[in-house]
Design a protein around this nucleic acid. Sequence first.
DNA 1: GTAATAGTGTCTCTTAGACAATATGCC
DNA 2: GGCATATTGTCTAAGAGACACTATTAC
Lengths: 238, 238
Amino acid sequence: MNSNLSLYPSPTVMVDIVIFTVEQDTLKVLLIKRGIEPFYGENALPGGSVQLEHDHTLEDAAKRELEEETGINHTYLEQLYTYGSAQRDPRGWTVSVAYFALVAADEVRLKAGSDAAEAYWHSIQGHRVEFPLAFDHAIILQDAIERLRAKVEYTDIAVHLLPQAFTLSEFQRIYEIIMQETLNKSSFRKRVDQAGIVKPIKGQMRTGSNRPAQLYRFTNTNNNRLFFPRSLVWAEKK
Amino acid sequence: MNSNLSLYPSPTVMVDIVIFTVEQDTLKVLLIKRGIEPFYGENALPGGSVQLEHDHTLEDAAKRELEEETGINHTYLEQLYTYGSAQRDPRGWTVSVAYFALVAADEVRLKAGSDAAEAYWHSIQGHRVEFPLAFDHAIILQDAIERLRAKVEYTDIAVHLLPQAFTLSEFQRIYEIIMQETLNKSSFRKRVDQAGIVKPIKGQMRTGSNRPAQLYRFTNTNNNRLFFPRSLVWAEKK
DNA sequence: GTAATAGTGTCTCTTAGACAATATGCC
DNA sequence: GGCATATTGTCTAAGAGACACTATTAC
């Protein structure tokens, strides 16, 4: 059976998800090695069919995939783009609604999904996706990286890559890793301060063999407001 | 028949399109009065099923809808968002991939689509969609208006609402109509100049009972580059 | 003390916006 | 000239980035 309303055949609808984290000073994406045809044994983004009985919305399906892969059910999740054509899957006309998620590395517990032999973090180097992926997933990943880089400049979504408590240096470092540029410290702090998106946590600090840093936590207060009045301007190279 | 690849039933896939124009100093959207059930006789966005035999991609389907409704086949067209749930259509689980298009008022030739009794321009007043539309189309339209307003601030897409030849005052007026704010004239001109997105047309001018304005045409050169280095800051009210 | 990172302050330069001056058409 | 809109120029203020200074810990 299918649920088609019209006289016309309808394409198969999948949901794929690009899950980013930052770990060991590197931007990483969650990939799986496919356990079924087509593209058996090749790398791909996690994803699957919408389950009409269980998923009430597309976002439900994306959340389900995210939780299946990482065990995480509350984090930053955003619809990326919808890819649909007769060519993108060798089996015929398909539509993939792609999402992208940001998860804090310390919260992830990887498990393999049902059609995946294994799930693992793949490091992203440079600005282009240079490695092969099944279907058009290399294009989807490329688009996701560009969306991430664009939104990081004018929103506060990067906090979702950090643990609950973090220092301003760690926060800045996240920006530098994603953008692959160096940021000016005082400007960054000034703008974080003005944006009012973080709040210092009581007496807590963190150690090293140097001055300890103030810990902060994210404040949800500026919902979807612009982070920076200007777009970020990156530090000049010396 | 259907083309489902999986064991699961797949939702019906539609493409809906939000077509904007600016006419008589007003932002307008193209609506149709539905000629079939459900929502017979109610207002809706133009749209229809993906036709697997004719459309090679989702964008093909959107372009086909756009041309069916307006006769225009080359203009600004961008995927907006994908809406999918069990509830949005009374007939069951559907997915609608929504696009939005900008068309110049002088290029449109309205014709009714196959499932539409009539197509017409509806004026948009204020910042909220206050009138009822079929399905979740009021939400789609609201999202489209917000996307348009957001992108107008940092891209040059507004030129697609103008005729081939236009004056800088007309260009600025488009911004003011979409944003419902007054812009500072000299700042606007300075930035348009720096962005290098328009080029004066040879000796041409346009008349009134006052100094005629230089005519410009759009230059495609800065493909997808940022229009404004800062986001636009609107003129203070006196 | 040194090393290392956290955090702050000052100075300069760019640019948006206010405001006004000038330009050019029609009557 | 008078009116209306086009176009340009000047001044000020806000904010970004360079750079350097101070602060605080471990050793």
